[in-house]
Design a protein around this nucleic acid. Structure first.
Lengths: 220, 220
DNA sequence: GCGATAGTGATCGTATACGATTTCGTACCT
DNA sequence: AGGTACGAAATCGTATACGATCACTATCGC
């Protein structure tokens, strides 16, 4: 054991995780200029692994990259938010529908418990915690998706949203209430053995509704 | 003008395009071992840009990569084919539905012309040409998709399929006839101003049907 | 005074070099 | 003869170094 290499084998991987974490937690806010040399020095590695990490993040859409100029953290352009939410509504809806037949009573119970926590959370509203619970809830529903590609797309969507600064519900607090109710409806739909199409539509609408609420608010 | 640098600015980009082309056209067949040094020497560049190109291809799912071992061209695992087709059916269906309102009469006419070519192509069946026309046809329908993320996902799906060796219809020649007819039905649906949901379902089923035909055949 | 242009600094892109890891072949032991 | 352990070759991972490109500023000409 040379040092604390326990982290993640390759330096590229480490760099990737560190930078990604900093973007998600907001240390690097949107528009932040990611300079290879600085990050490399900061992590105590060379620029090559950092460069690779940045390119991976570019592929995931978390940063934008311009040749001979550099990378910047992807902005929370309202248009981008719209695109991301719409895409997520589609792939998440599909993933949830594909998962549904594989969700047993135990998972349903867990999801319901999380949703109850969300309901309580409504009292002394904490956007960050609420968003986290929301992610947990949906995670339970779509993680059983047998198609790994779709699952990957869902994860990427969530990542992008996370990068767009922690809490969706901070923007549209009014959605929180409806959201909890829609969750329960979704659970009952799955329990009752509804068709894949019904579940997909419900899950998609659930997310579209948040998007619509955001649009309605920002337009006023 | 120094040389024939007109290709694509950076060496990474060049390497990416060359390797990708070779995978798609089959020079590097599935399972082929991609050695950084060899490719670098072959392209007359250093290993660093090649490395970056390979990682990009990994992100797109065209190659698999193992640390300290190397990259190999992603295999045509039947399961992979299934996953890719299913994912594509979802995102392509969505992209087509989103495009529909933006497709004018001119585009419809072009698509119909392509489909007629496909119909003629049925006589002296050429799988590769047919597959190309098929891609053109669907391209016309979904390229107007206003959401760039979804469009990107569709392109990635097509790429993966292309990498899985040129012609889908070689595997299920029987599908070709039905496919042409379904195309016409899809066009009429769009012309008649059908709802987004109807169009999405039709487009999705169209692709699912090809998948089902493949499964039915490989099971026999 | 305003615009264009040349110079400078910073950053990226790529090449080369070396250490780390894996894999395969061979020899030895049981 | 079969299996294991050692060693060498191949390949990957990263560091360092240098050339290329871009943004910014100050100066010159109009």
């Amino acid at each position: 054991m040379t040092e604390t290499v326990l982290a993640a084998g390759s330096k590229s991987q480490q760099a990737y995780e560190v930078v990604k974490a900093r973007i998600v937690e907001g240390t690097y806010s949107p528009g932040y200029r990611l300079v290879l040399g600085s990050i490399a020095r900061d992590l105590g590695v060379s620029v090559v692994p950092v460069r690779e990490a940045i390119r991976r993040l570019e592929a995931e859409g978390l940063v934008t990259f311009e040749r001979n100029v550099g990378a910047t953290v992807a902005g929370i352009d309202p248009t981008e938010y719209l695109y991301t939410m719409q895409t997520l509504s589609i792939v998440e809806g599909a993933a949830t529908a594909l998962s549904a037949p594989l969700i047993d009573a135990v998972a349903i119970a867990r999801a319901r418990a999380v949703n109850e926590e969300m309901r309580e959370c409504l009292q002394h509203f904490d956007p960050v915690r609420f968003t986290q619970l929301n992610q947990d809830f949906h995670g339970i529903l779509f993680e059983h998706c047998p198609n790994p590609h779709i699952l990957d797309l869902v994860h990427r969507g969530w990542n992008r949203l996370a990068a767009l600064r922690s809490s969706t519900f901070r923007f549209v607090p009014g959605r929180a209430h409806e959201s909890v109710n829609e969750h329960e409806a979704l659970l009952q739909l799955i329990e009752s053995g509804a068709t894949a199409d019904e579940i997909e539509k419900a899950a998609r609408r659930h997310r579209s509704a948040t998007l619509d609420a955001y649009l309605a608010q920002s337009k006023q």
